[in-house]
Design a binder for these strands. Structure first.
Length: 286
DNA sequence: AACACTTCCAACCGCGCGGAC
DNA sequence: TGTCCGCGCGGTTGGAAGTGT
């Protein structure tokens, strides 16, 4: 695709013929658009663009408003709960970003799409797994979702507030996680700070076990409502209880040096995507 | 310090749908 | 019925910022 997006060094450009501006929005433009929407309301974007005096297309105005200026747009890292929901909903709906975004208040389809491409697809690529494949669904259901449930529970125990309106989010406060059902021995290495000190040791990595909260759980009805976790083999989460296994992981330096490198350089206190664990999971799959 | 490389995300595009005429 | 227009969606791009060497 040859993009016609042509941004000058000043960060914007103008179409010579109709004076349509493209590229990054200025503060003045943002203010003008916000003011216009306050006066005229959303919708009729082409008309709004003309009336406002903005040299932007209606389409561009709409995008800027919905993805950036709208007051309820949430910014910053996605919470484990949000990540969990994205995985669930994507397994159900695929790349229906706007539909998925409807279940994540304050998040835009664009943000979710970017998250999927930059985090999830990237990791899938590292593992040479197609995100459409059955293997990927296995990865999600056996590995990522249990991890996210764990992290969701951890975060909920440290912070009692959640802006989630989705029913799936009460997962964090209820029931019991059937982790072993997902995986014979899921690599549940904690991504919390405890690993950092140990990483200065070049010989191997030995993580202490995660601080697993007694039992995690959820109300299966909530998953049923979303229709998730029920993959094509009839794989379905129920209310059975399983214990999350604790274990140490040790790697030969050669195999996982790069992974540890990544681990050090990413803030995995906030990020699920630990390459060490993907190495482990990938090996389990072989 | 300088350069190379990677990551992230705002902004763009083409396309398709649905309503108005 | 056909055409036009507004709108929304999913895919893609390019540049800023971050990180590595």
């Amino acid at each position: 695709m040859s993009s016609s997006k042509s941004v000058s060094s000043s960060g914007s450009s103008e179409d010579d013929n109709n004076q349509i501006r493209r590229g990054p929005w200025t503060l003045e433009e943002d203010n003008l658009l916000t003011q216009s929407i306050a006066n005229q309301g959303e919708g009729r974007w082409n008309l709004l663009a003309k009336r406002s005096g903005l040299k932007r297309t209606g389409k561009s105005c709409r995008l800027r408003w919905l993805n950036y200026l709208k007051p309820d747009v949430k910014r910053g890292n996605l919470t484990p709960q949000e990540q969990l929901l994205i995985l669930q909903l994507h397994s159900k709906w695929g790349n229906r970003w706007s539909k998925i975004a409807q279940h994540l208040p304050g998040r835009t389809d664009n943000e979710i799409k970017n998250y999927w491409r930059t985090k999830i697809q990237k990791q899938a690529r590292h593992l040479k797994i197609n995100t459409d494949s059955r293997q990927f669904q296995e990865l999600v259901s056996r590995f990522w979702i249990p991890r996210l449930l764990q992290k969701a529970s951890e975060s909920s125990s440290s912070s009692s507030s959640s802006s989630f309106s989705s029913s799936a989010m009460s997962i964090q406060n209820q029931a019991t996680i059937p982790v072993s059902q997902y995986s014979p021995s899921p690599p549940t290495t904690s991504c919390v700070h405890q690993g950092h000190e140990q990483l200065s040791n070049d010989s191997c990595v030995s993580f202490s076990e995660p601080k697993v909260p007694q039992f995690l759980g959820y109300n299966s009805n909530q998953f049923d409502e979303l229709g998730t976790f029920a993959y094509d083999e009839g794989y379905h989460v129920n209310s059975n209880a399983y214990e999350i296994e604790n274990f140490n992981m040790e790697y030969p330096v050669d195999d996982c040096q790069m992974a540890r490198h990544n681990w050090v350089n990413n803030d995995f206190a906030c990020d699920l995507w630990n390459m060490d664990e993907f190495c482990q999971f990938s090996n389990l799959q072989k």
